[in-house]
């Protein structure tokens, strides 16, 4: 399997950006250095026409290191190409640059990732919880959050 064109183009302008890649199950995937994520995504959007951010989410691979992965799914609506971009983050203070200026929908998706995994998106001006309430402590989709640990606003505790 040869490298796909996005990969080659990124390597040309940002030689250290792509750390790894695969296309298992036909899903083309790039693993990218977190510090250069905005540059990479700008390039993908402007030169390859990935005009839709289909999904942005995170995965917690506890106890593996690096622990977190932020996963972006892109779609080119005209040519129907899809691409997955992943960034790996360390456990202590996971943070990454926000892409809200490139795709407005990233606003809510990043807020959700913060809510569920506690990943900070630098440059996001409204980093509030999306689905849970402000007084909720912890981030429930982390593997070390017990499934039934309830934090009710009213009513009996557990």
């Amino acid at each position: 399997m040869s490298k796909f064109p996005e990969h080659i183009a990124i390597e040309k302008s940002h030689p250290t950006a792509v750390l790894d890649w695969h296309d298992r199950f036909g899903d083309r995937t790039l693993i990218v250095d977190g510090k250069q994520i905005v540059d990479v995504i700008t390039l993908l959007r402007d030169s390859f026409g990935y005009n839709m951010l289909v999904d942005l989410t995170a995965v917690d691979y506890f106890p593996r290191r690096p622990r977190f992965e932020v996963v972006y799914h892109f779609l080119n609506v005209d040519s129907h190409a899809r691409l997955r971009v992943k960034v790996q983050l360390e456990e202590s203070h996971p943070h990454i640059a926000s892409i809200i200026s490139l795709y407005p929908i990233a606003d809510w998706l990043e807020r959700e990732a913060w809510d569920m995994f506690g990943i900070k998106f630098d440059g996001h001006t409204n980093m509030k919880r999306l689905l849970l309430y402000e007084s909720f402590e912890g981030h429930p989709l982390r593997k070390d959050y017990p499934k039934t640990k309830r934090q009710p606003l009213i009513g009996p505790q557990n």
């Binding site: 429930p140 959050y145 499934k147 009513g155 009996p156």
Partner: peptide
């Protein structure tokens, strides 16, 4: 739904 988000029966409220 027996999890962190759901009230376990409204009769607790």
């Amino acid at each position: 739904y027996d999890n962190y988000a759901t009230v376990q029966g409204i009769d607790t409220i």
